[in-house]
């Protein structure tokens, strides 16, 4: 960064952009190094099947992390997403099982109703967060810390402390949403790609995206610039809620059940993916593509650890910690 400041005004922007480019490669470099290491440790790592496994399981956290990118860029945070996913999953299963008992709807209609409920609940929970944060003027950390407990407690209550399991016939009908492939690529990866592409377009090519960034870098200035700060914030939380709803729609057919451990610690994984991907936790700027790479990076680490036994199983969590810190270090110069 230092030489950039000594340059003359005319060349500075382009050089800065270039430097910015190099440092934004941090997560990508990290991912490449990890993939080489993985292949070297176990050749099975580089197989197509393993890649599909990793990307498919990244889809849940990845989709949520795309929504989280917007919230963090706007200067907010959402700690409740894991619990929210669990409660949405539980509510979906609960409703679908009840509809099966009622027996008036066809199985396909029941699954579609369940999906609609998931998306609706996600958006509604997000709207509640947004309203409490803007109109209620409570810190996002506190609001979502509160709902983190509330959502999970209601799921545990719905499940009676055990597991909510989807009706077997319905599950067979619904399973392809997670297990089927389109052109050789599993459905969750497609959905992840679409959400990430939409996220990139919204953030970089729309007025709303620019408003989110403006609010994150300076809320007061954004207000003077006649940006409807409250509305934009509420919409970012709704968008995140919707992403959680989409992730849950993909999650439920995997195991066909929701338990009180569903989605546990997803919030931290999503936040880590966003930050590892180069979005500043203080808000203002960030990139959706970085988040996508961050999310993949995190699941590649645990995949490699499972594929090898060179490190004591007791130290698995430490490896993840080291990698997060190293990648964050690689891209620190941007700020």
């Amino acid at each position: 960064m230092q030489p950039a400041h000594t340059e003359t005004g005319s060349t500075r922007p382009s050089l800065q952009r270039m430097l910015r480019h190099v440092s934004s490669l941090g997560p990508v470099l990290g991912l490449i190094v990890l993939c080489i290491a993985g292949t070297w440790l176990n050749p099975d790592f580089a197989t197509l099947d393993n890649m599909m496994n990793v990307l498919t399981r990244t889809a849940f956290i990845g989709i949520i992390a795309v929504g989280m990118t917007f919230v963090i860029i706007s200067g907010g945070i959402d700690l409740s997403v894991g619990s929210m996913a669990a409660l949405i999953a539980g509510s979906m299963i609960f409703l679908m099982n009840k509809l099966v008992l009622a027996g008036t709807l066809s199985p396909l209609a029941i699954v579609l109703t369940g999906i609609a409920l998931a998306l609706l609940l996600g958006a509604a929970f997000g709207a509640i967060h947004g309203l409490l944060i803007t109109k209620g003027r409570i810190e996002p950390f506190i609001v979502t810390l509160g709902t983190l407990g509330i959502f999970r407690a209601y799921l545990t209550y719905l499940a009676d402390g055990g597991a909510l399991t989807l009706d077997t016939a319905l599950n067979d009908l619904y399973a392809p949403v997670y297990y089927a492939s389109l052109l050789g690529i599993p459905v969750p990866i497609w959905v992840f790609l679409i959400v990430a592409a939409l996220g990139t377009i919204i953030l970089n090519r729309t007025a709303f995206g620019r408003h989110v960034q403006a609010i994150g870098s300076n809320e007061q200035v954004a207000r003077y610039a006649a940006i409807r700060v409250d509305l934009v914030k509420i919409v970012t939380y709704m968008f995140l809620g919707l992403c959680v709803g989409i992730a849950t729609v993909l999650y439920v057919p995997r195991l066909g059940s929701a338990t009180p451990t569903t989605g546990i610690l997803w919030e931290l994984e999503a936040i880590a993916a966003v930050v590892v991907g180069g979005t500043a936790l203080k808000g203002g700027e960030g990139r959706v593509i970085g988040t996508v790479i961050g999310a993949i990076l995190l699941s590649v680490i645990s995949n490699i650890l499972n594929l090898t036994s060179i490190i004591s199983v007791y130290l698995n969590a430490a490896v993840q910690g080291f990698v997060i810190i190293i990648v964050a270090f690689l891209q620190r110069s941007r700020h």
Partner: peptide
């Protein structure tokens, strides 16, 4: 359940 799913996938690979 979820962690068991992932660990098993990787064992199978």
């Amino acid at each position: 359940r979820d962690d068991a799913f992932k660990v098993t996938q990787d064992f199978l690979t």
